[in-house]
Each structure stands twice: as structure tokens, then as C-alpha cells.
Write a protein that binds this DNA or RNA. Sequence first.
DNA 1: CTGAAAGCGCTTACAG
DNA 2: CTGAAAGCGCTTACAG
Lengths: 332, 332
Amino acid sequence: MSVTVRDIAHEAGVSVATVSRALRGLDLVKPETRRHILDVADRMNYIGSSAAAALSTGRTNTIGIVLPSVGRWSFGRMMSGIERELRPSGMDMLVHALGDPSDPHPEPHWQRLASRVDAILVMSVAGGSRDVKGLTRLHVPVAVIGTRAKRATSLLIDDRAGARTATEHLIELGHRRIGLIYGRDHRNPLVLEHPRYLGYVDALHEAGIRSLRLLEVPGNFTVEGGVKAMNQLMALRKPPTAVFAMSDEMAFGAISAMRAAGLRPGWDISLVGFDGHDMAALMDLTTVEQPLEELGAQATRALLRRLADSDTPVQEEVMPTSLVVRGTTRPG
Amino acid sequence: MSVTVRDIAHEAGVSVATVSRALRGLDLVKPETRRHILDVADRMNYIGSSAAAALSTGRTNTIGIVLPSVGRWSFGRMMSGIERELRPSGMDMLVHALGDPSDPHPEPHWQRLASRVDAILVMSVAGGSRDVKGLTRLHVPVAVIGTRAKRATSLLIDDRAGARTATEHLIELGHRRIGLIYGRDHRNPLVLEHPRYLGYVDALHEAGIRSLRLLEVPGNFTVEGGVKAMNQLMALRKPPTAVFAMSDEMAFGAISAMRAAGLRPGWDISLVGFDGHDMAALMDLTTVEQPLEELGAQATRALLRRLADSDTPVQEEVMPTSLVVRGTTRPG
DNA sequence: CTGAAAGCGCTTACAG
DNA sequence: CTGAAAGCGCTTACAG
């Protein structure tokens, strides 16, 4: 049905070995022979079988991208960085979303990835999680973004310091009752949002403020979740005067909720986000910026390097974050 | 180095054929035999070679996703829908971004996709483009979102009608000088934004308004591009009193630019977007909503159906859009 | 229910 | 510079 090297060899009057060499541009083929073979392949609409190539070479020319889900804004940014680095190498991305942890999948469904990719890039999944532990045992180079993992190149930001800076900023403005909008499970040391929670607590404690469970509400890392979370906080008998949201998208939701309640962000309740969303400036949101695209790009470069030379050691790089102060934070 | 069916067969004292059957759960294996084999495989940490499986079955269990780039918000939404449908089937997504058309890639780089996927889903690439034409000739089922293509299942919205409705809304409010923020190449019939341009023009002409090239500015489908575009429009000697932006992200940029210039969206210049971005409500943006996740999900379902039964005919479905009126549009 | 054997379409030493 | 042949690790009729 479909054209193979064999057909081309036959048609061109050479061996399949020569066809294979010519097609891949190896330079032990006489120029005229190569040209002829290329012509024939072209005329016959030849499309190589990557499965066969992968089977014999052991290389798939694919990099696996593992992430919690495809929806989040920050993932898109990281993928942009990855894609940019991958393009010249001609490799493709196989995207694998882990999905809800409460999935009915008892066995690690990502095992299928193992034989389909040359390397794996994990974004925003905690280094200590079963998933990451399993992935790093897989005999392919692994890079993780946003966390630290054994046997993997780690690209991270200092989440704890970032969250601490954000909270300190609120404290410096005079706030003492500071709410927290987390994702879903901030007290679990195995999830990525945990360090941000610790940073928040660090800042509070250092200022002699007790952290109150009451002021910690989940926002699920979505705009909608942020709306709900903020409504919950505003409904308290004694609402916070300032709020730290673990993501800008949740902060946007919080702004929306405040406005709907007739409150002015900054004036009535201060708000800091986290990410550096490209709409943060527009929303006049104070936030902790992180270099998302760069994290993706660097992680990709590291993997390509390890693919090219397997002796390249696993490394760790911490990239800088910066607090950008805007109108949603004012003296309280 | 790595464990194969052969090793397991040897260890379990059966043939590789039996191992293969047991592993895939085919029910012509004696339950005890299967259990034993599964035990052995597990103990030896067996991970099957998908390349080998693909080579012998001709199925890759992968679906190719082709899109212009990974950054855009709407793509993320469609991918969420795709992922949701794909999860139960156990298939993976191989993402291929076409990148800038001005790429130094003369040959269609997506040809490599052909042998790596069972089906291809193309989002937001014009049906008449060389890329889509090539892809549909590839012997794998193709679905396209946002456009119509021969030999492909097409999931679309009526872009022209949507744009027309948006523009008519502005006209009904009394506006006659209506600007357009397009992407990059709205007058090219081969690009997806073209129908939206036509809808805009339709509405103008029907109202007896001449379309003015001067009022059409590019926004590159980004927030930042929207800022620039709006600045360009406001700098005209005679700025428009209303603007239709072909995407919400560009509209957000436009809002930002207006505010920075001291103008109030809606009061000073009316603005309609397109997409139904999850921050549109928050920005009080009037927009044309389209069912992005559903488009992705439906396209995926159609592909899975064709994969299960190759006789399934290619279909076409047009999904509804709706104008949601908010505060950025007021009588002019 | 199980096995021996052919085959999927490449790549790559090994000879020449 | 080129070819014959083995091999990559599965799956699948065909026998039994």
C-alpha cells in the first residue's frame, strides 16, 4: 500500500542500504546516486516509517511533555519556550496531561510514554510525587520545571522566596490580616504549591502574625475559582485587608469578585498575584513575575544537551523572580 | 538492555505469542497463564516498545494536533476539549506547531507527522492552505476546526455571521465609523481571519457605510498587538467611535490602550471582541462567544469514530456563536 | 488455549 | 561508494 525503501531501491536500481543512506543525507553516497534516489523518492511520494526507524535506531525524535492539565495559562507560556527550542532540532512534542489525581487510573498511565520519547520534560508536578519518581527511573533523560527531582535536570524559581516577598510587601504596607488563595492542596508537602504556602507563612511569622486557617481558601488555579475564593473571604465576619493569590488567574477572579461586591482592589482590599500574566499590567495587578518561557526553553536546551552527550551531568538552575508593584496593593 | 517479550516468554516458560496475547488482554489465554505472565512482566519491569507495536500493527495510538502556534488562549481551550475526549481512549497527542509562515522551512515539515499518528486534528489553519491540502492527502483521517476542507471532517462556527453580528451591533448603537483590529493578513482569502473580515464588511455595506482601509489595523492576535493597534487607531486624525477586534485578547489590549489614553471603553469608544475568553466578563467586554472546548471535543469524537470504522463518512458541523453584550458597547 | 514462524520497514556493521 | 544480511521488538495468521 504505502511506499517503502524497498520500492525505491527497486525503482532506483540500488540497494535499500543505499536508499537509507541517501535519504538521511549521510555522506558516503555518490552525489549523483543520491540525487537520483531523492528524485525517485519524491516522485513516489515516499514517507518514511518513523516506527521502523525508531525500532532500529532506538531514537524517536520526540520529547514527552508531562503536565497536570493543558488549560493553565502558565503551561502555555512554558510550552512556547519549549517549542521555540525544539523547532530547529526537528523534534516533536508528545503531550501527556496527568489529569485529576482522583482519576480512576490506578497504574501509572504515563508508562506508555517511556518507549515513545527520547526525553521527558515535566512541568509543575512535584518532584517528590510518585509520578515524577517513576518518570525519572525510566532510562530517558528527564527535566523538571518548577521543582527539584533526583536524577533530573531541574529548572526552578524560588517559590518560597517569591511568596514570602509578596506577603512581606503586604505586611510592609501595614496589613496584618492577610488572606491566602491557594490552589487545591497547599498543605501537602508533595504538591508544588506547598513552597508558596511556606513562603506566605514565613513572612507572617517573621512579622509576629499568626497564620489562620480560616483565611486560607482554595481557588483551583482558575479565574472562576478565584471568584469563589474571594467571595468566601469577603463573607467572613472579619475579612482580610489583603490577599495573596498563588496565581494571577485566581487573582483576576478575586478582582472580579471584589468589583462585583462594590469593593475597589487596592483601596478596600489589597491583592498580590503570582506569575506575571500578560494581562496583569492591564488589570493593574501587583504580582510576582517568573520567567515562564525561559524556564521551558532552558529545560529543553538541557535535555537536548543530554541527548547529544549522555555524559552531560544533571544540573539545577534557579531563575529569578521579581515583585512588580502595581495598583492592587496599597497601605491598609 | 531493556526487557522484551522474549525475556518474559523465557522467564515464564511460554511463547512470545502467548506473552503478547496476555499482555494485551486478549481473551484466548488461560487465566492462570495470563496472571503468571503479568506477574513476571511486572517483576521484570517490562515496558513494551510502542515502536515495535506500531510497526507490526500499523497503529500508533497517537493523534496529531496541528496548529499555528502554542501560545493562543483559544488553542488551549480547544486542546482541553480534545484531551478530555482522548483520555478514555488512551491515545496521546503529538503537537505540531506550524510556526511562522515565513519560516526557513521550504518543505512541509509536517510530513513527519504522517507516519507517527493515526489521525490528525488541525486547528485554526485555513482549509485552502497548502498545509491543510497536504495533510488531507496523507492517508490518515483528518479533522479541521474553524474551517472547511475537502476530505476532512470539519467543525466550525460561522465566522462571517459572527463578525457581521458584532459589527451590526455597533451599527445599531449608532456607530458609523467602525475600526477593525485584525490578526495579520485579513484580506488573504486563504487565512482563517478572512471570513471575519468579510462579515465586518458585510455589515458595513448593508448599512451603506464604506469600509476604510485606514481603519483596519493588525493586532497579531496578542494582547500586546491589541495595545499597538488601538494606539494606531486613536492616533488617527479622525479616530473610529467603535472597534471590532477579531479576538478577545486583542480587545483586552485595546481596552488597556484606551485606559492609558484616558478614554473609557464603551463611553468614549465602543469595543466588541471575539472568542468568549474567560476574562471577558471580568473586563466587561462585549464579545462573540464560540464553543471552543466543544469544537475540540467534537472534532476528536469524529476522528475516533472514523478510526473505529473507516466507513464513517466525513462530516461537517457548524456550531453556534452568540453575541454577549456587556459594558464596552454603548450608543455612540 | 498455545506455539513456530513470518513479517512490519527501517538501520547498520561487515564485506567488498 | 555500495550491497547482502542481520536485527530492532512486537503482532498475527496458521497449525495444532
